[in-house]
Nucleic acid binder design. Structure first.
Lengths: 210, 210
DNA sequence: CGAAAATTTGTTGTATACATTTTGTCATTA
DNA sequence: TAATGACAAAATGTATACAACAAATTTTCG
């Protein structure tokens, strides 16, 4: 794959932000990144610009680029958009979802207590990604993907501390999956709404003790 | 206002795309733009990159930057997102809409037959922008704004040829406005859904004779 | 000693030079 | 004539140099 240096820089920096290696409010120095990655400033700058559009960083004119913060407002906005779009995708594009992949994910979710937190975590991601990917609308896709990247950072903060929530989450996922499998997409959308509402409540609880 | 050269280039190029001065599929040459605008290639490139994120251009690696096309799929996707988000904003954030501005817009819409096409056109824009602006969710805002820019290009194509549609559109706008004024935001959302559905049908008819 | 001014340092913004790739031209050949 | 390949021209991708600005530091003066 003949990828550009800009894309390389983009991928590396994004991964560092999403993984929490760069914490919120960290200032990203262009020359430092340039030296470290062995890439000149120009592609670095372009990558940072791209990341700004995903709202993963804020470019402060003449000051620098700063890893964006995840405050309450951001968390609320992220969940709001997810609750609008993910059920919508199920209703509109449910039939386009890959059933085989669903079954694979379901089997992992069913063994939530055995497979461990990390596998569960990843499988959760897979489910949402699978649903998101079924949507052919480019504009909707960009919106939800941007939001979903931020969501990964939120989950890093919550850390899924409660195993109780993990089990509940798994059964909610299964409810969504089962509805899709019997091709009742309205029910699937409702199950997703329920799931997101619960996740929202759990997140509120863990992060803000509300 | 101490705006950067990148922003200047961005503003100029964007205006040219939205106004139709640059037609779809036009290749945008970086050095040509650089010479014409008296700005070096670096800010020009950054501006084009920004425009790519708004899907107003496509950057083809090693080939160049091309003004994006408005084909049937794009038109469908745009309307789909508008029909999802605009009514949602009314339902969720209706109370935040500036009522005074609404009254001003209403008076123009009421005289649709007198004020002429252009004023009508602009007032239509104002209404949708006003509603969009009432939404405080940054993620939703970016999504709908991106879509609304493209929508301007669609309207350029349809050219609002039918005066019948113009009159109908005005009365639909008034239905939305009146519902907001009496603070019945559910009704307002429904009126908006109706309006967008009709616009969608009219657009289909004009552009694709479907 | 403290505050304001001047200077230095470091960072981003912009311009330009160089590298790489694509594309168009034109001669060559089957 | 049509296809092919070498070559030239032009475009984008990348690196680097310079300019403008902000912040930190030092100096100067009350």
């Amino acid at each position: 794959m003949a990828t550009s240096l800009k894309d390389k820089a983009y991928t590396i920096i994004k991964e560092r932000i999403l993984s929490g290696f760069y914490e919120p409010n960290t200032m990203l120095n262009e020359v430092a990144l340039s030296d470290e990655l062995g890439i000149s400033r120009t592609p670095i700058r372009e990558a940072l610009n791209d990341l700004e559009h995903e709202m993963l960083v804020n470019v402060l004119p003449k000051k620098g680029t700063q890893v964006s913060e995840i405050n309450f407002d951001v968390v609320r906005d992220i969940f709001q958009v997810r609750m609008l779009i993910e059920p919508y995708i199920l209703r509109q594009f449910g039939p386009l979802i890959d059933k085989l992949q669903l079954l694979r994910i379901k089997s992992i979710q069913e063994n939530a207590e055995i497979t461990g937190i990390e596998a569960q975590f990843e499988s959760d991601n897979d489910l949402h990604q699978l649903i998101i990917s079924s949507n052919p609308n480019r504009y909707l896709d960009e919106s939800i993907r941007k939001v979903y990247d931020q969501n990964q950072r939120i989950r890093l903060m919550t850390g899924q501390k409660s195993t109780k929530r993990l089990i509940d989450s798994a059964s909610e996922h299964i409810a969504v999956i089962d509805a899709i499998l019997v091709e009742d997409y309205i029910k699937a959308a409702e199950a997703m709404e329920q799931h997101l509402a619960n996740s929202w409540k759990a997140t509120l609880d863990v992060l803000y003790h509300v």
